[in-house]
């Protein structure tokens, strides 16, 4: 292991880690929104939309991210839909993560007694108010472990986005190996970068889970 080389490479990895994090955060935020929408549609059994949401969930959960990205990035332009690598990565993560978030939320929603939304509705709250103020706070607290597991899962999945030529950690390492053949340093730095990125997220997620559970007294 050549440590001066490690010093030289460090800034490059810093940039790549930031990009991985930025794409991850944007993708996860989008996935959470998609997940919330899908879970809500299925929870209220909105006709047609609920079935569509179900079909989306199955499609998204039963195909790998690489294949989704290839289709988005290389296939769709043939239909005239051209998106940048960054957009593609974020949309891909949202498409993949949306269903995982939805399923996690759904398990949380199912844990809340049906009488609660019914009571809320009969008290004159709208569906969204009932969801937002009554059901969701409890559902999110129950689903928290699954949701945080999804966050870590999705950050890990970002490792795949280098295939659409986004210079993330995987890409930078591959690039450096190609340039200088310093495989050991390049890969060691990459493993370290992922550990540094994911371990704090994993710990923060656990802390968040605990505070949520205290909040509703589970």
């Amino acid at each position: 292991m050549d440590w001066t080389l490690v010093g030289d490479y460090l800034p490059l990895y810093g940039q790549a880690a930031l990009l991985t994090l930025a794409v991850g955060v944007a993708g996860i935020a989008a996935a959470a929104l998609v997940g919330l929408l899908v879970a809500a549609l299925r929870y209220f059994k909105t006709p047609l939309a609920s079935q569509l949401a179900g079909a989306y969930t199955e499609l998204s959960r039963n195909t790998p991210l690489v294949v989704q990205l290839f289709f988005l990035y290389f296939g769709l332009p043939k239909l005239g839909v051209v998106i940048s690598a960054t957009q593609c990565a974020i949309i891909g993560l949202a498409f993949l993560g949306g269903s995982y978030m939805a399923e996690a939320l759904r398990s949380g929603l199912d844990a809340v007694d049906r009488i609660q939304p019914e009571s809320a509705l009969s008290l004159g709250l709208t569906r969204w108010q009932a969801l937002r103020h009554v059901v969701l706070p409890q559902a999110v607290a129950v689903a928290a472990p699954a949701l945080t597991a999804n966050v870590v899962f999705l950050i890990k999945e970002t490792s795949v986005v280098s295939i659409v030529a986004l210079p993330d950690l995987v890409y930078v390492a591959k690039d450096l190996i190609g340039n200088d053949y310093n495989t050991v340093e390049a890969l060691a730095l990459r493993v370290a970068a992922y550990l540094l990125l994911l371990q704090p997220i994993s710990l923060a997620a656990q802390a968040w889970e605990r505070s949520l559970r205290r909040g509703i007294g589970v």
Partner: peptide, 21 residues
């Protein structure tokens, strides 16, 4: 061809995983 081939790959993975799920 990219649209069709990658579409087909997508469908193939779905066909492989969906029954197992």
């Amino acid at each position: 061809a990219a649209l069709w081939v990658y579409g087909a790959v997508f469908a193939l993975y779905f066909a492989a995983c969906y029954p197992i799920s």
